[in-house]
Computed example of a mutant assay.
Amino acid sequence: MRALALTLALAAAPAAASELSSTITDQLILPVFEELAADAAALADAAEKDCGPQSESLRAAYGEAFDAWIAASHYRFGPTETDSRAFALAFWPDSRGKTPKALASLIRSEDAGIKSPSGFASYSIAARGFYALEYLLYDPQLSTAGSADYRCALTRAIGTDIAATTQAVSTDWQQGFAAEMREPGKRYRTEEEITQELLKALTTGLQLLDDMRLGRPLGTYQKPRPNRAEARRSGRSLRHVLVSLNALEPLALSLAKGHGDLQEKITARFDRARTKAETLGDPDFSGVSDPATRFRIESLRQEIKDLRVLMGEELGPALGVAAGFNALDGD
């Protein structure tokens, strides 16, 4: 991943807070949203060329764009908050099953409003984004429900909507919000507030890994919840953990710039978590019901918890800030 390749360059020497935030903004945040917009545009194009749920090219484009979103999704502030864009791209967890209900309703009624991109953008976020598209591409019921022509139109509408939303996020970052992150101004009054926002993005990503990507399917030993695994229909549950780890590590190392011992601890912790994820061999976390596999998933989760402790007890104090509340608190 491009972000991981930048780690050594970003971690080279101590820097002032303004230099730190500018470097992270220019070399991590802007590129990841540019890549997301580009991959989403390729997804929309693939849907236009072949909208069938079994299309290899469409599924490949979907996977690339979804990877790009996971790599960017911990930056849940600024442009991703505008007009609930993050939720429009990724309505998950969906504990009440709103997404399949919304899609089934559209397919059943053959709602013609999906033909207008601006009109579709006003539809329920449950019918939009990557998780809605996963149902149309991978769910046995919804991928074959109703008229093939209508499902094709709906697939294209979702792809177009994802592309428009991600482009809007990237544009807002480039044309306005990046400047807010480079130095204090109207939104952030001090360098410390900017640093706190970046630390919060890091801890938000780790919290999502711990509580939701791993915690939800694990459930309890007496009652595991494999059906709650993220993107299980497309077999991407474990992949999302790895993509997220690879995106969070450069941010953590960049924030720890100038603290060599802490960077070594961060690298070691991420390596341990990544190794356990890479050797797990359970792409959709269905193994949470098997005692042996469950133990390995719990061991992976403990590595994430240890990372969270490291960020809270050592990185935050080293930066002189606390992470504070994030977009997941209270969910």
Rank of each mutant, 00 (worst) to 15 (best):
D139M: 12
L206A: 09
L133G: 14
F177N: 03
G63W: 00
P217L: 04
I29W: 07
L198I: 11
D261A: 15
P317I: 11
A41V: 07
A5E: 08
T204H: 02
Q141S: 15
K223F: 15
E64G: 13
T279E: 02
A37T: 04
S109W: 00
A71N: 12
N326M: 10
L137Q: 11
E191S: 10
A112P: 12
K200E: 01
V321P: 08
T190D: 06
T204G: 02
A72P: 00
D282W: 00
S289G: 13
I297S: 09
R228I: 02
L10W: 00
D50T: 09
D94V: 04
R128D: 10
A229W: 00
E81P: 08
Q175C: 01
T166I: 04
S237P: 03
E264R: 11
R213D: 01
R182D: 10
R213S: 03
A126P: 00
G324L: 12
K200F: 00
T166V: 02
R182F: 15
A229V: 04
A65M: 02
T25G: 00
L307Q: 03
L319I: 11
A163N: 13
L28P: 02
L106P: 01
P53D: 06
I107H: 13
P224H: 07
M311T: 06
R269T: 01
T144G: 11
L4F: 05
R76G: 10
S109P: 00
D83C: 08
Q27M: 14
G324A: 15
T165R: 05
S124D: 12
G281C: 04
K223Q: 14
R59K: 14
N246Q: 09
A102K: 05
D39S: 12
L6S: 15
A178W: 10
T267M: 07
A153S: 15
D331I: 03
L307K: 03
A65K: 03
G281T: 06
R228Q: 10
G215W: 09
E180Y: 14
A126R: 07
S170A: 14
A327E: 06
R182P: 12
L89S: 06
S234G: 12
F66V: 11
R236E: 14
F295C: 07
C51Y: 08
R236P: 13
G185P: 15
D26Y: 07
A318E: 02
L10G: 08
S109Y: 00
S84C: 11
L43E: 08
H74K: 03
E134N: 08
A42P: 05
D83M: 10
R76Y: 09
Q302L: 02
A37P: 00
Y150G: 14
L328M: 06
G215R: 08
P224I: 08
T80K: 10
K257V: 14
T144I: 11
A88E: 12
K276E: 04
G215T: 11
A88I: 10
D172S: 07
T144F: 11
D210P: 14
A40Y: 01
R272A: 05
A44F: 08
R108G: 11
L136P: 15
P93S: 06
T166E: 03
S170N: 12
R232T: 12
F130I: 01
A247V: 05
R59M: 09
D83R: 04
T220H: 07
A102G: 02
G52W: 15
R233S: 07
L310E: 09
L253G: 12
A11T: 15
L300E: 01
D94Y: 04
